[in-house]
Amino acid sequence: MNDDVKAGVIDFERPIIELEKKIHELKNFTVDERIDLDREIAIMQDKLDKLKSDTYANLTSWQRVQVSRHPTRPYFLDYVRLITSDFIELHGDRCFGDDKALLGGLAKIDGHKVLILGHQKGRDIKENVLRNFGCAHPEGYRKALRLMKLAEKHNLPIISLIDTPGAYPGIGAEERGQAESIARNLLEMSSIKVPILVYVIGEGGSGGALGIGVGDVVIVMENAYYSVISPEGCAAILWKDRAKAADAAQVLKLTAKELKELDLIDEILDEPLGGAHRDHEKAAVFLKSSILTNLKKLLLVSPDERVRIRYEKIRRIGSFEEK
């Protein structure tokens, strides 16, 4: 784990990691040398906590994007393992193939039977080739829709975890109707009768994210982002330079905090201090508790009423002047 963290270390995290290392060394030292340094360690621990909260309270948009892409950030299957039991993955779109970048299956969360689906990234190169870096093809979106219809038929709430840089831009994807597969999901998800809870757990990249993103509640994790275009794509359009992604991230207003301020999302989901990648278990506890709270609320409403409210919610979004 430690080596992985080092491999994916982001610049602004370096002071935190160094301080952690020092505390770790000090702890080892007390054990080896049998000296009591508890007070010193406690002081350093306080300092570390303060450093973490100061650093993370003041991240720039681009730094949040970097955290959302952190190679050790928990992914879909990590959350499935940490918050569900009896997960049965279901495969294939029944048309073309089984997309390994967008997964789904039946699962139990604290006794609630649900359908959970989401994008899956890989941790290393080999796994990322398999997972296509979390970039789904049309068969992924069609599989998702098939499973959502299954969930609707059997009255299982849907939990959708978004984590994608975007839908895959390739020849096969176009040939098989990438645009249509996303559009179809937008139309269908707007009227599915069971509750749909949408969480952006990492990257919320444009249409590829929205393709499984229409729901009763849309919640973005503290260090996740959700954007109409990737910062790199935006920078390429504005300044003909993908390297200016940091500036683009700023103008796009893509962080959870900004989106909440604009009333474009329902909630921000807190992450453990220092980001979800630094404590998978705690991040999972937060996610699970949010799912259970929101699910309980949504289950109080009748299916028709839920669909009506969902429509009204989507219907309201827009910013314009009327003469």
């Binding site: 559009a183 269908e188 009227s191 229409v214 959700y226 109409v228 474009l264 429509y311 827009g318 910013s319």
Partner: peptide, 26 residues
């Protein structure tokens, strides 16, 4: 496509127009 200059507002218009077309279909 979805107009970049209005950020996520634009992306959500995709869902909005499709939801309305869902009602048309019904």
């Amino acid at each position: 496509g979805a107009r970049m200059y209005e950020g996520l507002y634009s992306l959500m218009q995709m869902a909005k127009t499709c939801a309305a077309l869902g009602l048309l279909r019904q």
